[in-house]
């Protein structure tokens, strides 16, 4: 019986028979459909995925004409992270001239809005210099990272400690205070970098600290959109559903906790987001085909209802990709093709 070599979500190889592979795809799409209450993939889409994962070559790609736009989170950090000693402007030039990037992102090594605020006058001139020597559209990116507003790192009483002590109301009040502090920082830094000339602001890993994180970002986007009607604002999410760390927060009358991508994007549009980046988490003990079928199901629905461009997050541990530092290109390329050609989204 023929067996197909595929990867698991932890990156390791495994072998599946034809029927096992088909079952993985069917179970993956069913898992997403059940959780998000959306349609599972159709038979022909599952057949398409089957063909992708039984394609014997090392690398897969979209058909000519189906290419999409690539945006990057923490772009200048990716070279530093692997130990390449480049200045940030040099890193941008590497992306522009050597890596085939469609857009660029300039960012600080701490990659959160709060620590950038006190050094903003050092960030702005460097961004301004970068804009003189690059041609691609340039984002400034950072994370809302609401966790930084809790003691001992920030001013608000730690909600984790308060919840553990049974002080639910006090914990929620502390989180609500953190939202207000964060909105102020997000707007101040976003405004400064846009005034310096950035083409856009990227709120990356939004929702990492749960519903408070998502609410702060939506509020900041709303303010920035009013202040700068032409600003490009990208919001990339942290996980497939919004964690209810507070549990009672809402935006425009919609409770944030538990929202899946196709519901998140509706609020993002209302707030004034230009490009939305949904996330689907990878389950490491299931196969990449299972994870891809699952991820594509969530994102397909998000693309279907969205009026704004969708750039799905396709990094390690998300979008069907294995959770490893050095993502294997056989898996990345298959996930990339599957996501683009089934969901018909606008970018990655």
């Amino acid at each position: 019986m023929k067996r197909h070599l595929v990867r698991k979500g932890d990156g390791s190889f495994t072998e599946l028979t034809e029927s096992e592979l088909k079952k993985e795809l069917e179970e993956g799409t069913k898992d997403a459909a059940d959780r998000a209450k959306v349609q599972p993939l159709a038979h022909d889409e599952l057949e398409f995925l089957y063909d992708i994962f039984t394609y014997p070559s090392k690398f897969a790609s979209v058909a000519m004409g189906n290419e999409v736009i690539l945006t990057y989170d923490a772009a200048t950090l990716k070279l530093r992270r692997v130990g390449v000693s480049t200045h940030r402007i040099q890193s941008l030039q590497v992306y522009e001239k050597l890596l085939g990037a469609d857009t660029l992102e300039f960012d600080h090594v701490d990659y959160s809005f709060k620590p950038v605020k006190p050094i903003i006058t050092f960030e702005q001139p460097e961004l301004e210099q970068a804009l003189l020597v690059t041609t691609l559209p340039l984002f400034y990116g950072a994370q809302p990272n609401l966790g930084l507003y809790n003691q001992p790192d920030g001013p608000c009483p730690n909600p984790g400690d308060l919840f553990a002590a049974g002080k639910i109301k006090e914990a929620q009040e502390s989180q609500e205070q953190a939202v207000e502090y964060a909105v102020n920082d997000l707007v101040e830094v976003g405004s400064a970098m846009y005034e310096s000339g950035a083409d856009g602001i990227n709120f990356d890993t939004t929702g990492a600290a749960g519903d408070t994180d998502f609410l702060a970002t939506l509020k900041a986007v709303e303010i920035l959109r009013t202040k700068y009607p032409r600003m490009c604002i990208e919001v990339g999410m942290a996980g497939e559903f919004v964690l209810g760390m507070h549990g009672g927060l809402s935006y425009d009358g919609v409770r944030l906790a538990g929202l899946y991508p196709h519901k998140q994007v509706e609020l993002a549009q209302k707030a004034g987001v230009t490009i939305f980046g949904p996330v689907v988490n990878t389950k490491t003990d299931r196969s990449v085909p299972w994870n891809c079928a699952r991820a594509v199901t969530f994102i397909k629905e998000c693309v279907k209802i969205s009026k704004i461009p969708i750039h799905a997050d396709m990094g390690m541990g998300v979008g069907g990709l294995p959770m490893v530092d050095h993502p294997p290109t056989d898996a990345v390329s298959r996930a990339s093709k599957a996501m683009v050609e089934i969901t018909r989204l606008d970018g990655l």
Binding site: F59, S61, N66, L70, D102, V332, S333
Partner: peptide, 8 residues
């Protein structure tokens, strides 16, 4: 990988 597989 993404640039080669799907990028413009």
């Amino acid at each position: 990988a993404h640039s080669t597989a799907s990028g413009m």
